[in-house]
Design a protein around this nucleic acid. Sequence first.
DNA 1: TTTCATGTTCAGCA
DNA 2: GTGCTGAACATGAA
Length: 262
Amino acid sequence: MPELPEVETYRRILERHATGKTIAAVSVRDAGVLAGVTSRALSGALRGRTVMGARRHGKIVFADLGPGPWLVLRFGMTGDLVPLGAGEEPRFARVVLRFLEGGGLAYTDARKFGSLALAVSPEAYLASGRIGPDVLAVAPAAFAREAARRRAPIKAVLLDQALLAGVGNLYADEALFQAGIHPATPASRIDAAGLSSLHAVVRRVIARAVAIEADWSRLPRRWLLPWRDAGGPCPHCGSPLRRLRIGGRTSVFCPSKQRRRR
DNA sequence: TTTCATGTTCAGCA
DNA sequence: GTGCTGAACATGAA
């Protein structure tokens, strides 16, 4: 279940369960999740290396293995990172790492939209893809300036990883809900102050979700997300929530709180 | 059986 | 070249 808050919990899992440990074995159960590397090359590059730590940028996790290439983990729609005891192997495990000291980690991904890759460094990897600054790190003015020249719906702009890395479909809906902005509003129709405050809302929403470790049972009941799937009433005004397809993704919003502008 | 899905990428069009 | 939209990817769950 990976947007930035979920991916941050994966980073912590990696840090907690792998830091200081040495990779003894790499089992690729489905090479379909490997990007730009063969099973053999991945195993060769990882075996014998010690995990020094883990970084995150947007929805991407980088495992620091000391001198040599970094391991890059992306989670697609259904990726997860699962700590393993001896002999365990979860459903949908695609790659399994076992540590010399015992235990292991499984990279699971039912739909296989995620990927594992090797990179010279996080910086090199990010520069070669089109990944913008992490949403928790970028300055509001920079976001407002960029977004103001887009004519696409604000919802699509929030999801553009080249502009803001880390915002996904669900938290984008939450932020627009809290900001009172209709998801189909052309970004260029929102003034600078509106874009800046939207940016602040996005950061607050994502920071809060990180703080509760992306545990949805702990989401505030006044948020949209607990009610989003049920199509249930707006937690503020009771209006039936509405759904709309924007930029190929489903948007859920409150038609009364988020009025359409054009 | 059909529809939908927390992401990314690419072809095609204006 | 630029910006935008929609399809495709592979698969499980409702």
